[in-house]
Design a binder for these strands. Structure first.
Lengths: 339, 339
DNA sequence: CTGAAAGCGCTTACAG
DNA sequence: CTGAAAGCGCTTACAG
């Protein structure tokens, strides 16, 4: 039951430990015969080098830490999937952490990830202060930040979709269809100042010269239930709203259901606009209009940036353009299709 | 930029390396004064012991590997969330892997997880042969299998919901409501013999004396799209079906949409039954009837079993009863509520 | 092409 | 209560 070590192989093959090392690591300076003989023994004994021991020397753990707000949100599940698939292709593993949008948890999990020995970190940190992120970057690298923007730092790559632009596209879509009384369901976990979707919402209404009474904005937790509850609140407070822009698709799907339960027909009486384009968006009824960007690709790119930094610490890999676009479906069509 | 090591602290505090070790690990055999002095230096230098080096000695990595079919499926996201939350509470991290229901990938990722040095493994292995699982268990432990049953093994804990019973509950529900022409959307990744839901489907129909023509079973990938496509197929082949039992909720939600798109009213003309009770199930329209069990709790328990085995290798922690129950919602109500 | 030595950063016995 | 020695399982120079 004891694990077989490199010394076991060496003894069995009648060579030294470092010759075995050469054979298994495909290094030069070893004769073909010796390599084959050693590898045969490796095979026979079922030897697999201990990564932990290797890490001690190489300072590489082949592990990348990934902090996510909540893996239960399909958006983050997609990103993690993209990251994990890509990492696996390069022999890397993902150490996963959920921060629940809590700054303290994020900071804490980050420190456990790092002492754990990870080769790089992918994080969202929506709620962590800029200072803390930058201070952390001072003594750790490489870090990839997803959809979070702070001041440039050599240890930091920011992979950010233009959220403000996306939210503006959403609002423009609604405004151009004649909506003026547009409610917003915002994420209560995000401070007002940092909330790019909320800012875009307000800016857009303002640009069109419409008022933005505070009761048109409802804060809620970014889940199906949160969206459901917020919508009821919104429509009870002001039944004249003709559209609702939700922080994310999860909330928007909850909103659709809330409208139905309150007797509103979507989109005939009220339009619903989401954000994220999660898989369920096109299959609910009415299918959800939303803002799309490549979640899987974001996770994928995050890994590629980490790996690139690991191999070329001084080069900077250019950041691929991260597209964001409007997806127009049924939930914002003023003309109802069928009953 | 160099990491501070235990020797730096020792030098700075004017003590030996092992005294520092005693201080940070809260060991006995150290005077209060020395401990405090050392800890002050630890604080000042920002020393954090290198886990990798610790692992070399203690043979503990404080990492648990978790193989999941697809993190993108809300069922597995829930389980992972339960596992991660619980692991974090005990200072453990989760190394995540997606097997995509592919036996080769599962086996491969498993071996990378293990060489990586994990303290335990949580896996689904739906498609991995019993022999392989048992052979693996011979030289690795502890392992927790989720919803996968093989022969008992001292290194193996099986945390299994009674899938067959759940599927039977689903079928009974449909049969008692008078349905006789019930289609099934099965998971194409699972071999027929292992498919507990499919077996329950066939057994149930048979028990009631109804035929089970092969064209009533449609194999598909276990996703929203898979369910959508399979439903179209099913209803095109036999438009007389009055109910469909789907492998999981994702497929069932796809089925609801497919029915709508084909002009069938759910549940008036056709009833849809899911499995899993994912969050979206109660918010789609019509709300999905399904089979519920505690996904989060399964992940949670998996971790607790691993930790218990680690601390008491010879004891066996009793397995908590894993309830499974029918959740009756709108999608199987023969009387339609509103239009 | 091959091996003896040193060391990665810690902890675990063992002296004193 | 404290420290010198050995070692976890590997890899990296360095000789030869």
């Amino acid at each position: 039951m004891r694990r077989v070590t490199i010394d076991d192989v060496a003894r069995e093959a009648g060579v030294s430990r470092q010759t075995v090392s050469r054979a298994i690591n495909h290094k030069r300076d070893i004769s073909v015969e010796t390599r084959e003989r050693v590898l045969a023994v490796v095979q026979r004994l079922g030897f697999r080098p201990n990564r932990v021991a290797q890490s001690m020397i190489t300072q590489r753990t082949y592990t990348i830490g990934m902090e996510v707000i909540d893996i239960t949100n399909p958006v983050f599940a997609e990103m993690v999937r993209g990251a994990q698939d890509t990492a696996a292709a390069y022999g890397y593993n993902i150490l996963l952490t959920n921060s629940n949008d809590d700054s303290d948890i994020a900071i804490h999990s980050l420190s456990t990830l790092v002492t754990h020995g990870i080769d790089g970190l992918i994080a969202m940190f929506p709620n962590v202060a800029d200072d803390e992120i930058l201070a952390f970057a001072d003594h750790y690298h490489p870090i990839v930040l997803i959809n979070r923007v702070v001041a440039p730092h050599p240890h930091l790559t920011m992979l950010s979709v233009d959220i403000y632009r996306g939210a503006t596209l959403a609002m423009e879509h609604l405004l151009q269809r004649g909506h003026t009384a547009i409610g917003m369901i915002a994420n209560r976990h995000h401070p007002h100042a940092k909330n790019r979707r909320l800012t875009a919402y307000q800016d857009s209404l303002q640009r069109y010269g419409f008022p933005t009474p505070p009761q048109w904005v409802q804060m809620a937790v970014p889940t199906l239930q949160g969206g459901y509850a917020a919508t009821r609140e919104l429509l009870q407070t002001d039944p004249t709203l003709t559209a609702i822009f939700a922080y994310n698709d999860l909330m928007a799907v909850g909103a659709i259901r809330a409208c139905r339960d309150m007797g509103y027909s979507v989109p005939k009486e009220i339009a619903i606009m989401g954000f994220d384009d999660i898989p369920i968006a096109e299959l609910v009824h009415p299918a959800l209009s939303t803002i799309r960007y490549d979640k899987y690709g974001l996770g994928q790119q995050a890994i590629l940036h980490i790996l690139h930094h690991l191999n070329h610490p001084n080069e900077t890999l250019p950041i691929a353009d991260l597209a964001i676009e409007l997806v127009e479906r049924e939930s914002t069509q003023t003309t109802v299709k069928t009953c």
